[in-house]
Amino acid sequence: MLNDKLSKLRFMGLFLTLFLVLISTGTMLVRGLNLGIDFTGGFITEFSTSQSIEPSKMEQALQAHIVGKFELTSAEDSTNWTVRQPELLSDGTKNDLLTSNAWLKNLQESVLVEKSNITIIPLDSDYIGTQIGQELIEQGGLAMLTALIMILVYLSMRFEWRFALGSVLALFHDIVVVIGIFAWTQLEFNLTVLASMLAIIGYSLNDSIIVADRIRESMKLNQGESLSHVINAAIRSTLTRTLITSGTTLATIGSLWWLAGAPLEGFSVALFFGIFVGTLSSICISATFPELTGLKVDYYQIKEQEARELQESI
């Protein structure tokens, strides 16, 4: 009874993940990603102030004047400032060099009101290209692809191709869903978020392998139970571990999300949901996929017997 229920849950979960992937792909196509300046390039404006100002105060002052998002850095003890703005505003209209630094004049007036003896000296304004060149995007894509293939090969060697493909599919699901969340919320997708995607890959794989490993072990020791039963038993016996590990990791990321504030928001959101769906997919996809594609429950026993026979014949 319990076994049937768990199998049902797993298959329902599989449909849920499929549904999530479809929704995410749809959202991505309709809304697109809100790419950060790292990816899009944009405008850079530099100015200096006659006195040092707290960066947080400057940020607040700028927020009142600049339409759309921007990035602020300071230099020379907060007297030299750099503002980066994306080329495309969030409503899709194009920013240009002229409007992109029109705020500088307004800022002069506002800061003057606030602190009477500060003058703002415009230094430079220019268009900047993306931080990631075309060749680097290609390189990054190549890195991902190579990583995936190597993982497939390694896992196929250690397990069976169905487990390997299942794990890679689960990983694919996690990435697509997280990208879908970014398309949905329109949170900025920047290099940091990209890095957290890489972390999700690592985590998702880890999860899938641990379940797969237990399934393999149970298959070797199995005495006449069905594959579905073996898989369910393996999931049940790793469930505590899965919940503890995911729970503690989510706690760490949750506190980042809660305490670290805006600069780490995208980063923690990506990791949080990535690990959440990663846990789900390790059970629903990577453990269920081999069953769907017709893995025989006595696969490892036959293999071991063959190995024994081979040894005896030698």
Binding site: T192, A195, S196, L198, A199, G202, Y203, T245, T248, T249, T252, I253, L256, F267, L271, I275
Partner: peptide, 8 residues
């Protein structure tokens, strides 16, 4: 991010 993952 790597650090957090490592702790996990």
């Amino acid at each position: 991010a790597g650090f957090v993952l490592t702790v996990g």
